[in-house]
């Protein structure tokens, strides 16, 4: 971590991960930095893939906090990033909402599997998440996002989450969900969540999808697997709770192989 400033404005924290081939068939991590609320730890590798676990040393983000995680995967490297626990957005002392920015870059021939645990928007919290993935043609990405609105039986917090994915600068996917008290009207209505409290997306980008696109299919009544206008597939799922959501996204991952 290069900066943690706990001022009245909240905590500013940055974590950085860089992956590149180690020259022996594996992946090296020349950059692995960040502490305080965002601590990336290298865990046991699996074959060519380096594994990193984001360990939350504090709870949060709280209102006023601004967290950034950056991961850069160089040509032919392979990186898996998970998190040790759910991220819990909490109300804070500081004024204003919290921000959580994720910036991913994946080079040609490289693979990133970005599979953090759920984000839980606790009652009274206010969080804006932006996730931006810039891929080169020939990059592979698996990205999972799960949002849970409120702890069990609790009112949701306010959450906005935008996911933007580009390939060689061209947009592949740009989606924003906005929910909780104060969100634009109808978010929980029959076009939005219809009372569901867990929503998730699984995005898979593979160069071979450009030649052989995946057929769309339903995964039950509240989840769809859809080919994007490019070499990617998006699974969109709603569920009553985090456990059922994970089951659906795991099933989708199996379908995609």
């Amino acid at each position: 971590m290069d900066r943690v400033t706990a001022a009245t404005a909240g905590v500013r924290a940055v974590a950085r991960i860089a992956a590149r081939p180690d020259g022996r068939g594996g992946t090296a991590l020349p950059t692995l930095e960040g502490d305080g609320p965002l601590a990336p730890r290298r865990t046991r590798a699996a074959g060519a893939e380096a594994r990193v676990m984001l360990v939350g040393a504090m709870s949060g983000p709280l209102g006023g906090d601004h967290f950034t995680v950056e991961a850069d995967v160089a040509r032919d490297a392979s990186l898996h990033v998970g998190s040790a626990a759910a991220t819990i957005a909490l109300p804070g002392q500081a004024k204003g909402g919290a921000r959580y920015d994720v910036r991913l870059t994946v080079a040609a021939g490289a693979e990133l599997r970005w599979l953090p645990e759920q984000l839980i928007a606790v009652r009274g919290s206010e969080l804006a998440v932006t996730t931006r993935a810039d891929l080169a043609t020939g990059a592979r990405l698996t990205l999972r996002e799960e949002q849970v609105l409120g702890r069990w039986g609790e009112e949701p917090g306010r959450l906005t989450s935008r996911l933007t994915v580009r390939i060689d600068g061209r947009p592949l996917l740009d989606q924003e969900v906005s929910c909780g008290p104060g969100a634009p009207g109808g978010w929980d209505g029959p076009a939005g969540l219809a009372g569901h409290r867990a929503l998730g997306q699984l995005l898979v980008v593979r160069p071979e999808f450009a030649e052989g696109p995946v057929e769309p299919r339903m995964l039950g009544e509240y989840a769809s697997l859809t080919p994007l206008a490019g070499p990617g597939v998006l699974v969109t799922a709603l569920a009553p709770d985090a456990l059922k959501l994970r089951r659906t996204l795991d099933e989708a991952a199996r379908v995609l192989g």
Partner: peptide, 12 residues
Amino acid sequence: AASAPLLEIDAQ
């Protein structure tokens, strides 16, 4: 880029 999850799912 505002999206409505059920509109997407139901359309399929």
